[in-house]
Amino acid sequence: MSKFLPLLDGLKLNKPLHSLSNERKIKEAQHIWEHESLGGIAENNNPLPRPVVGLLILTFLTAIAWTFPLFGQRPNAAIFSDYVTLMHSSPVQQVLQDPTLTTTARDKKAMAMIVDALKDSDSPFEFQRIQHPISMNDLRIMEPKIVELQNQHVDLSEYSIIGNEVALANFEGNWKEDGTRSRVQPWWDKGYMTSVYYFFGFCFAVIITVKRLPPITWKPDHTIAH
């Protein structure tokens, strides 16, 4: 057996790959387990208690649910594109120039009108608009940049809203035909999916490791070495 890397034993090229958990290996492990004292310390061969297994499954599900990408996505400029259009409409402009109202009241009323007007629209951005409410002041600051992007006919969903600034999103998606990368963050988010694959890879590796141990029905006899 290699002194440092015993696992490599199973990977010798002149031998077919053999199971690491065959009967002989397990008998050897049981013998070592019972016949040597590790500085006076013994170890049992208990499984994880079932409630703890449940807790671990709950941990995984919580991790997935709690960090679901939609909850953490930055708002993109496409969400507010309709806001800018409505901001330029005459009813909203009338409110914004109403001399009988204070500046704050005008802004609040105008924004409420915009939100109301879009409430029943069949928009894919409805959820994200609720997630990211903005003030009229923010909209005023964003408006020139959004209009500029609209005129360039670029995909507004590739631009993030950071505070009240509009910037090219830092999400790195698939390569597009024109040689640039997609900046649209999909609901499944590649980092999130990497985590899911990573978790299952971990489970697979742990199962292989633990499979080499004697079955959980076997209880070591600690009186032999101690």
């Binding site: 941990t59 919580t62 996505q73 790195e172 963050q185 988010d189 980092g191 999130y192 990497t194 985590s195």
Partner: peptide, 16 residues
Amino acid sequence: PLPEWLKSFASVEGVL
């Protein structure tokens, strides 16, 4: 401004 996918990955790992 780290890549968003990296933050998503890190966050799930963080709970795990």
